[in-house]
């Protein structure tokens, strides 16, 4: 695990603005069942907590959502796109295998020669992007757009009981900039454990098994989650482990946390997280019922909502994410006065 603390460099880093983008199309549980999902509406709600999710329409892709979220974040910060010094896009569902989705979004945003690149860290992607953006700001490159966007609906097998009902599409963006020391992003922790590389994955379409008629016939272009229970436990352990490392490093406890903003994989994981952290469930931000699991974007979308609707000056906000890879991350933020 790696922990980054801007204060160790005598600097402050803050989230100057945030924005989100969701597709227009709403897919209810009844819609999924009509498409062939072998679960009842009652089972879907009981197993996942998801009532509906947003899916992109024909021709729409990850960079479209990422661009919209990025523009919203820049507008929220009352900044200009011309100020942006780097675009980081966390995704596991880029528009193309090559080039990066960040480059497609870059063209749409008109970012000139500003560097742009993707980051692949599955459900922890937003926290990974925040961490890299923070490193950029600490070395004088600011502001930086940290975006997380995923369109998992293109990779869902609606007949698979384990994954059919989980995923939605969406994007979140944060404009990360210099700030006062002791406010904003206090610390970020990241970890990876490659033993889970095949825990949730899309088997074909990469360099190991390129797409072919047989891979498509076998559905290998869709998400597989054969080790679901292990991923579930690992995600919670990763989120708890990184969160507790940050709290300990800062001399804080769960009681000091005003809001816990987790990745939103499914309701059961969130309940388990709250139970094991022994945190008041009212402090846990749940933003899942009408969006589903948007992979990298989920925690960013939940953070955007939490900051707008619930955050008060001085609040300590703990952002945690974990999932496939395995990967996990946590970010500790102090809301400015």
């Amino acid at each position: 695990m790696k922990v980054l603390r801007p204060a160790d460099f005598g600097r402050g880093v803050r989230v100057r603005g945030m924005g989100v983008a969701l597709p227009e199309r709403r897919v209810t549980n009844a819609d999924l069942i009509a498409m062939g999902c072998p679960l009842s509406e009652e089972e879907i709600v009981k197993l996942t907590g998801v009532h509906e999710r947003r899916w992109v329409g024909p021709g729409e892709a990850t960079s479209d959502l990422a661009s919209r979220a990025a523009r919203a974040a820049v507008a929220d910060a009352k900044a200009e796109l011309g100020e942006v010094e780097r675009l980081i896009l966390a995704t596991v569902s880029p528009d193309y295998s090559s080039p990066s989705a960040a480059c497609v979004a870059h063209a749409r945003l008109g970012l000139g020669e500003t560097p742009a690149h993707d980051v692949t860290a599955s459900c922890s992607g937003f926290v990974y992007a925040l961490e890299i953006a923070t490193r950029c700001v600490l070395t004088g490159e600011a502001p930086v757009l940290a975006v997380a966007a995923d369109v998992r609906s293109r990779f869902v097998d609606v007949t698979d009981r384990s994954t059919a009902a989980l995923f939605g599409d969406g994007a979140a963006a944060a404009l990360v900039d210099e700030g006062p020391v002791g406010e904003g992003l206090l610390a970020i922790a990241l970890l990876a454990d490659g033993s889970g590389a095949h825990s949730v994955y899309v088997p074909a379409g990469g360099s190991r098994e390129p797409a072919s008629e047989s891979t498509v016939a076998e559905g290998k272009h869709t998400i597989r989650m054969d080790a679901g229970p292990k991923v579930y436990l690992k995600a919670v352990e990763g989120m708890l482990g990184t969160a507790e490392a940050l709290l300990e490093r800062e001399g804080l406890s769960w009681d000091d946390v005003a809001m816990l903003v987790p990745h939103q994989p499914n309701r059961r994981i969130l309940d388990r997280l709250a139970r094991l952290a022994k945190i008041d469930p009212a402090k846990v931000v749940i933003d899942l019922e009408d969006k589903g699991n948007m992979s990298a974007a989920s925690v960013g979308v939940a953070l955007d909502r939490a900051l707008r609707e619930r955050a008060r000056p001085g609040d300590l906000v703990l952002v945690v994410a974990g999932g496939a890879g395995y990967t996990a991350g946590a970010a500790l933020l102090r809301i400015g006065e």
């Binding site: 009981r161 384990s162 989650m225 679901g228 229970p229 579930y232 499914n266 059961r268 388990r272």
Partner: peptide, 23 residues
């Protein structure tokens, strides 16, 4: 059972026997 139900079984076992199952 599929994975989502297996998770429920794990949680029910944790509750019934007051233990935590790790990954």
């Amino acid at each position: 059972v599929e994975s989502l139900v297996r998770i429920q079984i794990i949680e029910a076992v944790e509750d019934a026997f007051d233990l935590i199952v790790s990954a």
